[in-house]
Design a protein around this nucleic acid. Sequence first.
DNA 1: CAATGTAGTTGGTGTCACGTACTAAAACAA
DNA 2: TTGTTTTAGTACGTGACACCAACTACATTG
Lengths: 157, 157
Amino acid sequence: MARKPAVVASELSMVDALAQLSFLIQGTLERRASEHGLSMIQTRLLGVLRDRNPTMNELARLLDLDKSSITGLVARAERRGLVRRVPSRTDGRAVQVSLTDAGRAHVADVATSFEADVAAIVATLPSVERKALSALVSRVLVAHATAHGIDLFATTS
Amino acid sequence: MARKPAVVASELSMVDALAQLSFLIQGTLERRASEHGLSMIQTRLLGVLRDRNPTMNELARLLDLDKSSITGLVARAERRGLVRRVPSRTDGRAVQVSLTDAGRAHVADVATSFEADVAAIVATLPSVERKALSALVSRVLVAHATAHGIDLFATTS
DNA sequence: CAATGTAGTTGGTGTCACGTACTAAAACAA
DNA sequence: TTGTTTTAGTACGTGACACCAACTACATTG
């Protein structure tokens, strides 16, 4: 929640640390995305599509949005040539969404600059502590994922 | 950018770790906020106002939004009785925005449940490593803040 | 005082999210 | 095979948000 001092010199509480970090990371990603003409949600859409060709319904679950929101989201992306909608061969109702080359290029660009940003942000940390940080965060994420029955390493088609 | 495996067993890259963590934290906050009828941006607004009474212009800088966006944002919050707009005594053009009691109660509620969420998320980590995590994140944030000339511990009126 | 700058609003446009209502295809029944 | 019921997706209306450009009113500067 981005609070104030409360503690001594330059040491944040866990809540403040994680909250501020998340704002920093999200802000960084958002800025890079908008440099490439993408909104946050469009970027998330393209990111999800990098290793999947989900149906509209699956997209709704992946992005945690109402399926009626997906229609417009994908429509705007399709109108810009970033995404393709192909009728499913196995289900006459369903549609498979996939990246176009342009979409893949866009998301790759954003990912590249975002990765550089993150690297720069943690560059102040010595290598050993960088390792420690990513290991700790990984542990938290893995624990949280398994606690919620989510396979963090699944590549759901 | 929420990538995929690439590495071996349950260890994410720094980028993936921080990106996924930020999505997790933001999602958590967003869910809690919406439980209290608040959008993310409204919550950020109230959060910023907890220890400040900024003008519209200062709000624009604090939230990194166009000043014309602030007008509507504050108007909606004011309409709901969460926020108050008082004409500045020193500058006939300016307006000071402050929390109402209702607004303060709302943001306190959200903060409380959010803090519990964060505590639960890191609860899987032993106490020592929790300390290490928040210390590492703090270091990153402080370094980033000073590198960008921002006083992380300022309570700008 | 006149010229310029600054604070804030207004109006127009576009994105995004939701709920509801709808069509069409599947899946399930009898 | 016929219904009947789910399921996938869209269409439509509404509201929050965000931006830009243009505008008003007050401040500051010369």
